[in-house]
Design a protein around this nucleic acid. Structure first.
Lengths: 144, 144
DNA sequence: GCTTGTTAGTTACAAAAACAACTAATATCT
DNA sequence: AGATATTAGTTGTTTTTGTAACTAACAAGC
């Protein structure tokens, strides 16, 4: 792409990435929205708490690369719907430990499994090598 | 990912794709926003008109996979800022032919070149084969 | 102890996206 | 021709984001 070859919008990597990202998350998004009324950020918060155990909102921000306002709103919404509880830490009352409720853990288990299925489906058309290359490139582009 | 191997959020392809998409478009987005006050949809509209010549809004919707309300608003904004003109077709007055003005064409040329540079930068860390595989996978996932 | 700075999290307001309802023009069916 | 359906595009309303300003708790320097 350093030459003057005319190129399509589909050849423009940011556009292609964007389309692939949108398409790839469509079905799964529909699933957690229909079943638990969750938004993407809420699913991500649930994922982190379910997968790594209780942690503070800040931790989620850092690990999941989500802005604190988004996490704050997601946590409020999840608390309101009883998917998680907050407990302020006694030694530093700025922090709150977030913890899934039983309902939250059940949702996590279900969504985690669903995520694995979607992932399997998504990678099915490709060879292991292709998937490995895809991941490697994406990780680098995403600057992980 | 069909087994029960615990997996990170970064291993979940939709998430990884989303992060890569966001990261990859950040710099370029800043560029067209700062220089021309354009939004993403506006840049895409300009791209299509600049690259393929005059066409209707509907054409852009189809080719660029953008919803008609987004295109409609982008076109209004671009017209207001004199990047394009609209001409209703005499034989079917529902259609309007969209056409870049001189300023629009200049912006397109600049942005097109910038896009090529960003693309080159983005793919620089990878081999040609890796990029080819990446594209192939993305095209399939995006269902192009 | 008191100013200054930093950190966790919330809130308020503005920008943007999503969705549905609408108008106007044309096409179709009887 | 006249009712019905389709198509291009717009507008209005609601959600969701992004940004910045804010509170409250703690830390550090002097």
């Amino acid at each position: 792409m350093t030459d003057d070859t005319p190129f399509d919008l589909q050849d423009f990597l940011p556009y292609l990435l964007n389309q692939a990202a949108e398409m790839s998350s469509l079905d799964f998004q529909r699933y957690y929205k229909a079943k638990y009324g969750m938004l993407r950020t809420e699913w991500r918060v649930v994922f982190h708490l379910g997968h790594y155990g209780e942690m503070t909102a800040k931790n989620i921000c850092t690990r999941a690369r989500i802005h604190k306002t988004k996490v704050s709103r997601a946590v409020s919404a999840l608390e309101k719907r009883r998917f998680l509880t907050r407990t302020p830490l006694p030694d530093d009352r700025r922090h709150e430990t977030l913890k899934l409720t039983a309902a939250g853990r059940a949702a996590f288990r279900d969504l985690y499994r669903a995520a694995q299925d979607f992932e399997a489906n998504l990678t099915a058309p490709f060879t292991d090598e292709e998937v490995a290359t895809l991941r490697r490139c994406l990780v680098k582009i995403a600057k992980f």
